[in-house]
Simulated assay, not measured.
Amino acid sequence: MLKHAILLSTLLLLTGCALKQYPQSPKVSDEEAQTYNCATLDQEIAKTHSVQQQIDKTGEFDALTVIGFLGDFGIGNGIAKASANKHAATRLSELEQLKTVGCNHPTA
């Protein structure tokens, strides 16, 4: 009986982790910031928007949502999604700032 209780407790603890895998966006490195041109920045911004869409799609209600809720009330999946959204928003902000600084040439 004790083995069953330990096994059940272990399984519940393991299901308490985030079950969904959200894409992670790294910060813009110094090397990237120095080598990106305007066209590359546009591509990277589009990729980051795509990552944000993937995060939203992964976050949709499905069987993993139910299992995550049973394990830890969905906290693990919620934390993973919030972290992924934060990283994507940070990267997007950095890319847009680089584009504003390096690609807006006055036409006067």
Score class of each variant (00 low, 15 high):
1 M>P: 04
1 M>L: 13
1 M>V: 11
6 I>L: 15
7 L>M: 13
11 L>I: 13
12 L>W: 12
15 T>W: 02
16 G>C: 10
17 C>Q: 14
18 A>V: 13
19 L>M: 12
20 K>N: 07
20 K>C: 09
21 Q>I: 14
21 Q>G: 05
22 Y>V: 08
22 Y>E: 06
23 P>G: 10
24 Q>A: 15
25 S>Y: 01
27 K>F: 11
27 K>I: 13
30 D>S: 11
31 E>T: 12
32 E>L: 15
32 E>I: 10
32 E>Y: 06
33 A>W: 02
33 A>I: 06
36 Y>E: 04
36 Y>C: 03
37 N>V: 12
38 C>N: 03
40 T>V: 12
41 L>M: 09
42 D>G: 05
45 I>M: 03
45 I>F: 03
45 I>A: 02
48 T>G: 00
50 S>A: 15
50 S>P: 01
51 V>S: 05
52 Q>S: 14
53 Q>D: 12
54 Q>Y: 08
54 Q>S: 13
55 I>A: 03
55 I>Y: 01
55 I>S: 01
56 D>P: 01
56 D>I: 09
58 T>R: 07
58 T>G: 07
58 T>Q: 15
58 T>Y: 07
62 D>F: 03
63 A>S: 11
63 A>R: 04
65 T>Y: 04
65 T>N: 07
70 L>G: 03
70 L>T: 06
71 G>F: 04
72 D>V: 09
72 D>G: 03
76 G>V: 06
80 A>E: 00
83 S>T: 14
84 A>P: 02
84 A>H: 01
85 N>G: 08
85 N>E: 15
85 N>M: 14
86 K>E: 14
86 K>W: 09
87 H>T: 10
88 A>L: 12
90 T>N: 07
92 L>G: 02
94 E>W: 05
96 E>K: 04
97 Q>W: 10
97 Q>E: 15
98 L>S: 01
99 K>N: 02
99 K>T: 03
99 K>C: 01
102 G>K: 01
103 C>H: 03
106 P>E: 11
106 P>A: 11
108 A>N: 08
108 A>F: 11
